[in-house]
Design a protein around this nucleic acid. Structure first.
Lengths: 129, 129
DNA sequence: CACTATACATTGCTATACGAGGTATGAAGC
DNA sequence: GCTTCATACCTCGTATAGCAATGTATAGTG
């Protein structure tokens, strides 16, 4: 089974809004994780955990991968593992690469806008403008 | 009335994923818009449109403001306008300021992680590590 | 033959953005 | 004094999406 974490001890609202920040960015992150080459499901989760700040559950990544695959942005292939359960490796298609480039640009703009907005908060000064 | 925009002419999927990027960040943006002083509903929309890249509908901002108010992060007061409809001005409370600082820090971390992830895409090189 | 680890998959719940439509106030035109 | 228009606030319904929980399959270990 795995996955238990804090079920309902107390932590419940504390990081509610923080979770919202990640919403929507995960598709892009999933695509980005495949930029340098193919990875399988759980490997993508670990990759994102190491290379960014994203910790996603299995119930999150698989629907995303299926969605992206349905859109033709990536392909998958079963590969026999040396040991254990066979793995389903995902790779970016050319449309996938192209889309990711667009997303990355949009992200830059979006991120820049928000950062500008938050600058005075982080520096405790007046709005930049 | 107002508000008509493209109802269903054709544009419908084109920027579907782009919209997702904004999800969850809007609460933070709303709080941030009030950092330097009080603003009323529609004014917040205009403020965000100018100072960031966010264009939100009225049906989006009012529920957010009510939510934040219910959490005690901001207060509101009706103010008679010199002309026209009275305005409901929103102001950050101290807890609101504190929360916004936390959010801004979380945003910095989150944003940094994603940017690192997207760097190779934007520069068309290998993953930075 | 349990037991455990790894990996993929699905269902159900909840939160959220937002389009569409509505109400209230007051100013300007006729 | 109506009608019209502009400004401002509010709310319902829907679609989407993350994710906890749960299940199944494969194969190595004692």
């Amino acid at each position: 089974m795995a996955r238990l974490k804090l079920q309902s001890e107390e932590a419940e609202q504390p990081d509610r809004w923080e979770a919202q920040l990640r919403k929507g960015a995960l598709e892009m992150a999933a695509l980005a994780s495949l930029w340098r080459g193919r990875l399988y499901g759980l490997e993508i989760i670990r990759f994102l955990e190491v290379h960014s700040q994203l910790v996603l559950a299995e119930g999150t990544i698989y629907p995303i991968l299926n969605r992206l695959k349905a859109e033709g942005l990536l392909t998958s292939e079963w590969v026999e593992a040396v040991a254990g359960h066979p793995r389903k490796y995902y790779s970016l298609t050319e449309p996938g690469r192209q889309r990711l480039r667009l997303m990355a640009e949009a992200w830059t703009g979006f991120s820049g806008g928000l950062s500008r907005l938050l600058e005075p908060v982080l520096t405790e000064k007046e709005i930049s403008q």
